[in-house]
């Protein structure tokens, strides 16, 4: 631990490395896209800005040498979650143009809460880790290492997770299928 602190002393904030500059720039883009996602009045644009934010996070994972996580992020989030969200927007007949009631009436209270928690979190985190240095020269999350660790030490949670995914799949099908036939057979249709 003391060697880490010593290493951090030799790295000032005023002479950033190339990785830090890249991280900062991509982080700004990610944060801006996230802000637009939660504030825009056009629902479909919110989903598309979410793609930018999640893709930026994938680049951040690459900069942190977590290569496998980055590609999983691109595959799962950008590839499927955003598509699911767009399908959800279409199926609930979301308006294409600006919808003035996208924000609730308590948005000022929400803004207060968010700014207060952001100030508290950033203050605490910056105070706690301002001298901590990450060594990103050695890759920590290459695909080979992640695969062998996942199937050697984390096999049981992995299998439990596949059961969870199966349950979620079945649950989503049960929730979203139209049960008009069953309701008519029970004789209490009309909903």
């Amino acid at each position: 631990m003391s060697s880490l602190v010593l290493a951090a002393d030799s790295h000032g904030f005023l002479s950033p490395t190339g990785v830090e500059v890249a991280f900062l720039l991509v982080g700004l883009v990610t944060f801006g896209a996230a802000i637009v996602t939660v504030t825009t009045k056009q629902l479909v644009h919110a989903a598309l800005w979410l793609v930018v934010a999640l893709g930026g996070l994938a680049v951040e994972y690459l900069l942190l040498t977590a290569e496998f996580i980055a590609w999983v992020q691109v595959l799962i989030y950008v590839g499927s979650v955003v598509v699911l969200l767009l399908f959800g927007l279409m199926l609930t007949r979301a308006p294409i143009g600006r919808s003035p009631d996208a924000d609730s009436g308590n948005r000022w209270a929400a803004l207060t809460v968010a700014l207060a928690s952001a100030a508290a979190l950033v203050w605490v985190v910056a105070d706690a880790f301002r001298t901590t240095w990450i060594d990103v020269d050695r890759a920590q999350g290459s695909t080979a290492v992640t695969g062998s660790i996942l199937f050697r030490h984390w096999v049981l949670p992995f299998e439990a997770l596949s059961v969870l995914l199966l349950a979620a799949l079945v649950g989503a099908i049960v929730l979203s299928r139209k049960n008009d036939g069953a309701a008519a057979a029970d004789g209490k249709g009309g909903h």
Binding site: F31, T37, V38, L43, E60, A102, R107, A109, S117
Partner: peptide, 21 residues
């Protein structure tokens, strides 16, 4: 960055009306 993103999401959860947002 992660604290700022978390608080952005917190604002969105509290301020949005559409369930998908």
């Amino acid at each position: 960055l992660s604290s700022l993103l978390f608080c952005t999401g917190l604002y969105g959860v509290l301020a949005r009306r559409n369930a998908i947002l």
